[in-house]
């Protein structure tokens, strides 16, 4: 079944150097490129075939690459992930999709007990080059289980890597990068940013491992990922009006976390606020705060502050603006750090 599609593999992919794409388009192009370059790649999940996915990330891919390589599965997430294990054992590079973050819960057994452990269990003989795409985080007034932030849960599991892009450029390049790695990667797509356009340098992705400074500054570092990066950039603009020069660090990789980038940035600014949508307790903000404190304790001007979601189930759409860190709450967090005085 694969033969019909492999003929296109050598077709040269020519792009203008910089294109203006939405994140949805960038992800779609990344999958297209990976399917073209690597005949072992398979893209599948609920409604990923003919419909092109509920967010249209896989739009047109089945028509172009064939229904053997881009296909719909029955509606069962454990099945999708369990099947991915067997496909990886058979030499394929699965890129499954879980339609929404909260739908990863029924697949946790296969993700945690199988995908994350098979390389270890088999002493490296059965690698799991599985890139699990998860439309993630809140902000679109969706029903229950459609706005979850699972990064801490995944990052806690030995054997998984976790990444989240914040703009179209990184979405394009990080997805291609993740899909070319030999280890399982949970790829968390900030669904509220799918339709935001931005420049994508199709040829040069830059450095794809580690964090990225998206706005340099001198007085304080905002650490964020996913949809919170754009919000932190807005906050930085507002703070600048008051003469506060904020650096925004997009963490990108939530496992492994780029500890050196945190040390470099906060070593310079001496103050840090971590922002995430996930609940406070045992969130990744705690891990980030510890890494900063460990490395920058002597020069820190204030304890690392966290501005996060609350320890509540993700609320209904009417209340989600109360839950997700907004500009005011982040500014107040910055203020607390700037006003901190040692007792």
């Amino acid at each position: 079944m694969l033969e019909s599609t492999t003929a296109t593999l050598d077709a040269a992919v020519e792009y203008a150097e910089v294109e203006h794409l939405s994140m949805q388009q960038a992800l779609n192009r990344a999958l297209d490129d990976v399917l073209t370059a690597d005949p072992k790649t398979l893209v599948f999940g609920e409604d990923c075939g003919r419909l092109g996915g509920v967010f249209r990330i896989t739009d047109g891919l089945q028509a172009k690459h064939g229904d053997a390589r881009v296909f719909d599965t029955p509606l069962a997430e454990s099945g999708i992930l369990g099947m991915s294990v067997g496909l990886a054992m058979a030499g394929f590079h699965p890129i499954p999709e879980v339609q929404f973050d909260g739908f990863a819960y029924p697949a946790i057994n296969q993700i945690v007990c199988q995908i994350a452990r098979m390389n270890y269990r088999s002493r490296g003989k059965l690698p799991m080059p599985v890139t699990l795409r998860v439309p993630s985080f809140g902000g679109i007034r969706a029903p229950e289980h459609h706005g979850e932030s699972l990064e801490a849960l995944f990052a806690h599991v030995p054997g998984l890597k976790v990444v989240s892009p914040s703009d179209a450029h990184d979405a394009y390049h990080l997805l291609k990068y993740a899909a070319s790695r030999p280890d399982p990667v949970i790829f968390m797509e900030p669904k509220s940013r799918y339709w935001q356009k931005g420049p994508v340098d199709m040829r040069d992705g830059g450095t794809l491992s580690g964090a990225r400074i998206v706005r340099p500054g001198r007085h304080l570092t905002l650490v964020a990922w996913g949809a919170m990066v754009a919000r932190c950039l807005q906050v930085a603009e507002l703070a600048a009006e008051d003469g506060i020069d904020v650096e925004v660090l997009d963490l990108r990789w939530l496992k492994p976390i780029d500890a050196e980038a945190l040390a470099r940035s906060v070593g310079k600014t001496r103050r840090a606020v971590v922002v995430h949508e996930a609940p406070l307790t045992s969130g990744l903000g705690a891990e980030v705060a510890q890494l900063i404190t460990q490395q920058c304790f002597d020069t820190l001007k204030a304890p690392v502050e966290r501005v996060t979601g609350f320890d509540v189930p993700y609320p209904s759409g009417d209340l989600e603006d109360e839950y997700i860190p907004n500009i005011d709450r982040i500014l107040l967090g910055i203020q607390r750090v700037l006003e901190y005085r040692r007792g």
């Binding site: 992930l81 067997g86 054992m89 058979a90």
Partner: peptide
């Protein structure tokens, strides 16, 4: 050690045989 843990793996591996012919 996971009860029924590998049953889906068998299905995925088997589908891989179909794809590879």
């Amino acid at each position: 050690a996971v009860v029924a843990g590998s049953v889906l793996h068998a299905v995925g591996w088997a589908h891989g045989q179909t794809l590879q012919g």
